[in-house]
Design a protein around this nucleic acid. Structure first.
Lengths: 109, 109
DNA sequence: TCCATTAGTTCTACATTGCAGTAGTAATGT
DNA sequence: ACATTACTACTGCAATGTAGAACTAATGGA
C-alpha cells in the first residue's frame, strides 16, 4: 500500500494541479501538514512514485524570475488517483468509531 | 510521525478494548482493512509501539480452550491515543478537497 | 562584463517501518 | 503419551522516510 508520506505528496500535487512542481509541493506539504519536509524526502519520494507509475514528471520552462531554474513538473496519474483513493478509504474505514474521529469518520457507511 | 500500519494497529487495539491481544488484533486488521496481516508484521509492530510508549502489553491468562495459550494483551496509552489523533487529523486536513474524499473530508474545518 | 544572489534540483547515505515465514510453547482432548 | 490447536517469539530482508550538502542556471546590479 501507499505510505503516509507518499499519500501526502500525491494529495498535495493533485491539489496544486497545473502548478505542481517540486518546490511548490514542498511548501504545500509544510503548510498543510504543519511539519518540515526535507528536500531529500521530497525528491526521493517523487522518484519512487514515478517509478511505480503513480505520477509522471517532466522538466518545465525556467520562470522569468531571478534564479528561476527549470522546474520539475508533476502530474498524478489515474493509477495514482486510485491508489490515493484506496488509501483514504482504508483510513476512513479503520477510523470509524475511534474516539479521536468523533463526528467525522463514523459518517462513512 | 506514525506509520500507516502502526495507525491501523493502534486503532484496532483501541476498538477491541479489553479484548485486545495479538491474534485478535490481527483478525481485526484483516477484516477492516481487507488485506493480509502477517504474523511478523503484527508482533514487530507491537514491539516497536511498546518501545515508543504508545501501547503497553502484558501476558494474560490462558483461555480454557483447546490450545489456549497465554495471550499478549495490549492497551493503548494516552500518548498512543494522542499520536493516533494527530495522524488522523493530518490525514483529514490533507485530504480536504481531494476528489477522492468528496463528501467527507471537506466537512472538517 | 563579472559576480553575488537566488530558485530550484540532484545525489548520497542512513534510519525507520513494513512484511514474511519458521520455530517454539503451553494447554486440550483422546 | 501424543496429536492437535491457539498463540507468541525470532530472524532477515524489502520498502519508505529523512537529512543535507553539492550542483545548476538564470537575474540584476556595480
Amino acid at each position: 500500500m501507499l505510505g503516509e508520506f507518499e499519500y501526502l505528496l500525491i494529495t498535495t500535487a493533485a491539489r496544486l494541479g497545473e502548478n505542481a512542481y517540486g518546490a511548490a509541493i514542498r511548501e504545500g506539504i509544510e503548510e498543510i501538514a504543519q511539519r518540515k519536509c526535507s528536500i531529500g524526502a521530497l525528491y526521493t519520494t517523487i522518484e519512487r512514485l514515478e517509478g511505480k507509475g503513480l505520477i509522471t514528471t517532466w522538466m518545465g520552462e525556467a520562470t522569468a524570475e531571478r534564479g528561476g531554474r527549470a522546474k520539475r513538473m508533476v502530474r498524478v496519474t489515474g493509477k495514482g488517483t486510485r491508489a490515493a483513493k484506496e488509501f483514504y478509504e482504508v483510513m476512513m474505514r479503520v477510523s470509524r468509531g475511534a474516539s479521536w474521529a468523533v463526528g467525522r469518520a463514523e459518517k462513512l457507511s
